[in-house]
């Protein structure tokens, strides 16, 4: 049995409105369609690689929806396209990382409140703690939301981050998407004790272990966590149980480590279908709305794909110009040499 410390209640909003529920559905459809299209882009040679998030739409849209971009800051990994889309980040600029245009993406992280795409597993979890402590020092009320997975929970940096955040009472929400797989290694071979949320108690951090495929549960939990952290109660951990329905990346071959039967059993009901059934049952949306949402998602994907295809390479001078704020003579000399010896001036 997990013994999770309680999250302070109060400050959380009431039940979701019909408009909010419909918006969540539209976002999830947009993310689903862009995500599955990105795999097609890769197969068509439009982008060299992609890390799909199929099945994690509820976890990403639900948590990203709780963010207040006027004061909070989000620290993603490389698989948070759904969070970026929900936060309103320019998706051509975001997807450019998968076009191999620029590692961190072309979006402005400071303006979008989304840190650059992070390829180091657990690399940015400590950054969230530092940023959050800065809020404390500045007497501001922003909250840092940091994403990581069940695999990343094995990294020492996650332990250090949770300990630092708890000691400093930093306003951080640790959002774990436990999707069952770290490339080929299942959670039971990864997470001793079977639960990342259970570990939070060891740091004195309240935790919520939730159904990550229920977008409403995810949003409500994240809002509670934000309210808790914003009120000066320190960090919260949310473990959203979900399932990575697709491969780790477009280079991965899940057939080598899990069967189709295992995949079907582990995945359970599609989170998008779950929300659809709920909206139908509650009379909040009808088939016309769903068709309209899908059409909008398709139009959006087409626009993003056109933008990605039109994206040229960055000028090579940026390799040199963006290393430092204050460049060095050695770097200038190398840049001059490169210019002289290369054709693409």
């Amino acid at each position: 049995m997990d013994t999770l410390l309680p999250v302070a209640s109060g400050g959380a909003a009431g039940p979701l409105t019909a408009d909010e529920l419909r918006e969540l559905y539209s976002l999830m459809v947009a993310v689903r369609h862009l995500d599955t299209s990105a795999i097609a882009w890769q197969r068509q040679g439009i982008i060299p690689g992609y890390a799909p998030e199929l099945g994690q739409e509820a976890a990403q849209v639900g948590s990203g929806y709780a963010v207040d971009t006027t004061r909070d800051f989000v620290f993603p990994t490389y698989r948070e396209m759904g969070v970026a889309r929900t936060m309103g980040v320019d998706m051509v600029a975001y997807m450019s990382t998968h076009k191999a245009t620029w590692h961190g993406g072309l979006y402005n992280p400071m303006e979008s409140r989304l840190a650059p795409i992070q390829a180091v597993v657990a690399g940015s979890v400590l950054h969230a703690v530092g940023w959050a402590h800065g809020q404390t020092l500045d007497q501001q009320d922003g909250v840092a939301l940091t994403y990581f997975g069940d695999g990343a929970s094995s990294q020492g940096d996650v332990h250090e981050a949770m300990n630092f955040a708890a000691v400093m009472k930093a306003p951080v929400v640790f959002f774990v998407q436990n999707n069952g797989w770290a490339i080929s290694v299942p959670t039971e071979r990864q997470v001793a004790g079977g639960s990342v949320a259970a570990r939070a108690a060891g740091y004195g951090i309240p935790a919520l272990k939730i159904d990550g495929d229920d977008v409403v549960a995810v949003l409500e939990a994240t809002r509670r966590a934000f309210a808790h952290a914003r009120s000066g109660n320190g960090p919260v951990l949310i473990e959203a149980m979900t399932y990575r329905r697709g491969p780790h990346s477009t280079s991965d071959d899940p057939g080598r480590y899990r069967s189709l039967d295992e995949e079907r059993d582990g995945a359970g009901i599609d989170p998008l279908e779950r929300l659809r059934q709920r909206l139908l049952a509650e009379g909040i949306a009808d088939e016309a709305f769903f068709a309209e949402a899908l059409a909008a998602a398709k139009a959006e994907e087409e626009q993003i794909r056109t933008g990605i295809q039109a994206l040229g390479s960055r000028p090579g001078t940026e390799m040199f110009d963006l290393v430092f704020q204050e460049t060095t003579p050695a770097l200038q000399a190398q840049a001059a040499n490169w210019r002289e010896e290369s054709e693409h001036v």
Binding site: F73, M110, V125, G130
Partner: peptide, 8 residues
């Protein structure tokens, strides 16, 4: 790691 966040 926290230095990065503070710098941000």
């Amino acid at each position: 790691g926290m230095s990065v966040g503070l710098a941000m």
